[in-house]
């Protein structure tokens, strides 16, 4: 099963190496990983999407916690969080039919057209996993020339926070 883990780390050189090394060294998967500073200067937050059964996820959390630079690990999968992902997607837009179809899809998905040429459209879309996935599937027939995804970020709902 897929899990989203939020990880607070001390923002020091080598932290990311240690975390990615842990995943490869112990045979855990990383589906996506994002990292950026938090509201506190010296603390960064990672959002890791991984998969595995309960035992594997437990080991991943424990092994992450074992790293000295890791401050907190929380599994935010269980519906207690909101997650978002940003995607930039460049689609082949040669035929007039395709060009108008892309625009219609963009409107439905509340996408910004960030770049346009005689042969392409580039869309920027933000949303949860389902939205991003269905967008990609709808655009695929036209021909996706390039796609960049930010990886997922997640935040806890209501009064809950993940902080030091």
């Amino acid at each position: 099963m897929r899990h989203t883990l939020s990880v607070l780390v001390q923002n020091e050189s080598g932290v990311l190496t240690k975390i990615s090394g842990l995943f490869s060294g112990r045979g855990f998967n990383i589906e996506s990983l994002t990292v950026a500073p938090t509201q506190e200067d010296k603390i960064s937050r990672l959002t890791i999407v991984t998969n595995g059964d309960e035992k594997v996820i437990e080991q991943i959390s424990k092994q992450l916690n074992r790293l000295i630079n890791v401050i907190k690990v929380l599994d935010v999968t269980a519906g207690q969080s909101i997650d978002r992902e940003l995607i930039l997607i460049k689609i082949a837009a040669l035929k007039p039919d395709d060009r108008s179809e892309i625009l219609r899809i963009a409107e439905i998905f509340d996408a910004d057209i960030v770049d346009v040429s005689s042969k392409t459209y580039t869309l920027e879309v933000m949303g949860d996993e389902i939205k991003i996935k269905s967008l990609i599937e709808l655009l695929r027939p036209m021909g996706i020339k390039e796609m960049v995804r930010s990886g997922k970020v997640a935040i806890l709902r209501e009064m809950q926070t993940l902080s030091v």
Binding site: S13, G14, T17, K18, G21, L22, G25, I68
Partner: peptide
């Protein structure tokens, strides 16, 4: 050194 030893030590530091 930090890269090489990361997976085989409890912790490591590069002094800045």
């Amino acid at each position: 050194v930090v890269g090489i030893t990361s997976s085989c030590c409890k912790h490591n530091y590069l002094v800045n």
